[in-house]
Structure formats: C-alpha cells, structure tokens
C-alpha cells in the first residue's frame, strides 16, 4: 500500500483518504441523519416540562410504555435465548429458511406485522377465534396485545445478537465442563451464560429500545386507548394533533432513551476503529 497516494493530514488512521466528493456526500448524509434530532431538541418546550410531564396522557403513556416494553423484553429473553441456542448449537434440515423466518420482523414493515397479528390472534384469527371460543379471551385492544406486538418486532434483535455471541463462546470450554461431569443445565448456567453475558446485555438493550419505539404493529393490533394500549409512540402521533408541545416532549424522551442505549452499547457500535 505504501506506493499508493501519499498520506494526507486528514487521512484516516488506516488506508487512503477518500475522494473529496465522498467527504461532501458523507457530510450531507450526516446532516440528514442528525438535523431532525437537533431540531427536535430545539423544539422541546423545556420551560413547560414539569407541567407537561404530569399531563395524564403523557404519564399514562410513559407508564404503559415502560411496563409493556419491559414485559416484551422478559418474554423475548425467555423465548428468544432458547431459540438462539437452538440456532447456534443444532443443525437441522431447512435451518437457514427457519432462521430467516424468525428474524423476518426485523425488516418487515411493522404495520404488516400488525395485520399478521390480527390474522393470527384477532377475534376472527387463526388462533384467536378458537381461543375466544374456548376461554372467552380476546387479545386485540388489550395491554397484552401491546406486549405481543412489541415482542413480535423486538425479539429478533435479541435472537441475532445472542446467536452471534454464542458462536464466539469457545466450544472447548463446554467440552471440558462436560468431561468434568457437568450436566447440560450446569454447562449452560456456569459456562455458556457467563461468557455470553456481553452479547446478551447488548441484545437486551437493542430489544428493549425497539420494543419501546414500536408503533405500527401496536396501533394495528392493539388499537389506541389511553392507559391501556396508548404507548409513547402512539401518544406522540395523536398528541401532535391535540397538544404538539406534549408530543415534542415525549419525542425527546424517546430520543434520550435511544441515545442512552447507544451509549450503553458504545463498545459495540461506537468503536473508533
């Protein structure tokens, strides 16, 4: 590489500095990503935070969002970590296809997910109708539906992160533990999980942030009722009509949470090299 273009003062730590056009386009791209966030911060009505945050609509949305996103996180860990274990440790026919299906919600438009959830768990749904006939329980328009919608869109983020982490755990450690007589649960608990912890924590943070921001599947499957199914993103959308200042404040809170998650994951995403 030394015979190529001489390093410039502004060149990166490795390789050759990109052409100037790329720098300009990159700056434009950065502005596109960051300007809305800066503008949102500027529009947040700081002087009225105290009064707005005690607005019942804001408070209810805040509480429901926290509870439902944490519930979605718990469900995702309980169901998603085992699924990641299966994907990382077992080979079975059609595995790539099955795996793709499991992470599809990451790229699926959330509103499509909501329509799918209605088709599955709605009052006339594939599972929802027999469930309603057998137990009288209907899921749409309930807080449980909010948790299901958030889990549907957020769990794949946990699965892919944990699965990638599992692939980095040295299998010889598990073999050694097995030769020393440890059973599968002990190996999972004492060997795999401790080694997996950084990936699991990162997966949980991503999963929680995605669950907290969920909108499309929620409004489609769970509807919108303050206190029961109106989460913060839904409140932003509807308050923008009635009380824009409250909408800006909730938006800023969601932005702050996203920043916090990113900072917590800085070793993963903000490494400078």
């Amino acid at each position: 590489m030394t015979d190529l273009a001489p390093p410039r003062a502004t060149s990166t730590s490795s390789g050759v500095a990109p052409p100037r056009t790329a720098i300009v386009l990159g700056v434009v791209g950065f502005a596109l990503l960051v300007l809305p966030l800066v503008s949102l911060t500027l529009r947040t009505p700081w002087t009225r935070v105290g009064e707005l945050i005690t607005d019942p609509v804001v408070l209810q949305a805040l509480r429901l969002s926290l509870v439902s996103s944490l519930a979605a996180l718990v469900v995702s860990v309980v169901l998603g970590v085992p699924l990641a274990l299966v994907f990382a440790r077992y080979d079975f026919p059609g595995k790539p296809f099955v795996r793709a299906l499991a992470v599809l919600p990451m790229v699926l438009p959330p509103v499509v997910g909501g329509v799918g959830l209605l088709a599955a768990f709605g009052r006339r749904g594939l599972v929802g109708q027999p469930l309603a006939e057998a137990t009288g329980i209907t899921l749409p328009f309930t807080s449980a539906a909010v948790v299901i919608a958030a889990t549907f869109v957020a769990m794949p983020f946990l699965i892919v992160t944990v699965e990638a982490g599992l692939r980095m755990v040295d299998p010889r450690l598990e073999d050694a533990a097995a030769t020393l007589g440890a059973d599968r649960w002990t190996i999972l608990r004492r060997v795999v999980l401790p080694a997996l912890w950084p990936s699991l924590a990162a997966g949980m943070a991503l999963c929680w942030a995605r669950a907290l921001g969920e909108f499309g599947a929620t409004i489609t499957f769970a509807g919108n009722l303050p206190g029961r199914t109106q989460t913060m993103p839904l409140a932003v959308y509807l308050e923008l009509e009635r009380n824009p200042e409250a909408a800006y404040l909730i938006s800023f809170l969601l932005l702050a949470v996203s920043v916090a998650v990113l900072v917590a994951l800085r070793d993963r995403f903000l490494r400078t090299t």
């Binding site: 209605l118 709605g122 009052r123 006339r124 749409p140 328009f141 409004i219 769970a222 509807g223 919108n224 009722l225 303050p226 199914t229 959308y237 509807l238």
Partner: peptide, 19 residues
Amino acid sequence: PSSLERDVRAALSKVELGE
C-alpha cells in the same frame, strides 16, 4: 370504547375485520 382509532377508516376497518 375499546380503542380510539387514529382516523375514521381505521375505526371502520376494525368492524370490517370482525375485531
């Protein structure tokens, strides 16, 4: 009400879907 929908068509669609 079980839900306050974001527009009148969304409210109608919940009836059309049987929800």
